[in-house]
Design a protein around this nucleic acid. Structure first.
Length: 211
DNA sequence: GACCAGGCACATC
DNA sequence: GATGTGCATGGT
């Protein structure tokens, strides 16, 4: 199946996803969440975000002023907390160069922003793309594990290499920022319910035959 | 109690 | 460039 058809089929089935609303109060929550969720379930991310909201209201200045040990304690439920604390500090030190102004960061070009994010230790391609799209308004395709899996089930396996997979999808689709955001949301939300190829066949093949 | 969850950096060959 | 390993918690 062509990439554009995959998008159409998913959109027809799922439509607009309730995803962004919960984040809109603060881009900083998106940033912390994107780091904390690396190789980790959202169930384990939520309590850490609660800590950062309750104690600091996600304020980057206050969080950057924490000692490494204090920050680790806040995010302990999410696992890999020594690395993730360091990564959060790296990102906040970078953002400090822009006076913690999301608006200033948004004004960077996509290529400049992406290259600055990837230069930070702890930020790889997936996290960089996630932060760009949901915190900084530079949308695109996120070639995460869920997307690799569902594209394969649709009979269109993506390249193993992250950048190649991302480029292939972005060249095949001409979407608005909101549509790219919703595409990723559909992929992730479907991935939560569809965990095997059997589930996929039931959801996308059998249900269409039934309907 | 094994196995997994929206990665990433680093060492080694 | 490819492959292997450590990082760590909490849910199933």
């Amino acid at each position: 199946m062509q990439i554009s058809a995959i998008y159409d089929v998913m959109y027809q089935k799922m439509g607009e996803q309730p995803w962004l609303e919960e984040w809109q109060e603060s881009p900083w929550e998106v940033i912390y969440g994107g780091i904390l969720v690396q190789n980790t379930s959202w169930v384990n991310v939520a309590p850490s975000l609660m800590n950062l909201k309750k104690n600091f209201n996600f304020d980057p200045q206050q969080i950057l002023e924490l000692s490494t040990e204090a920050l680790q304690k806040q995010i302990r439920p999410s696992g890999f907390y020594t690395r993730k604390a360091q990564t959060i500090q790296n990102v906040l030190m970078w953002a400090q160069q822009y006076q913690f102004s999301i608006e200033k960061i948004q004004k960077l070009t996509s290529t400049q922003l992406r290259s600055e994010l990837l230069a930070l230790v702890g930020i790889g391609p997936e996290t960089a793309d996630y932060l760009m799209m949901y915190a900084f308004g530079h949308a695109g395709f996120i070639a995460d594990k869920y997307s690799q899996r569902i594209f394969e089930w649709f009979g269109h396996p993506l390249p193993i290499k992250y950048e190649q997979a991302k480029n292939e999808v972005e060249e095949a689709l001409d979407l608005t920022d909101a549509e790219w955001q919703n595409f990723h949301a559909m992929i992730v939300n479907s991935g939560k319910e569809i965990k095997s190829k059997e589930d996929f066949v039931n959801e996308y093949i059998n249900s269409r035959n039934r309907g």
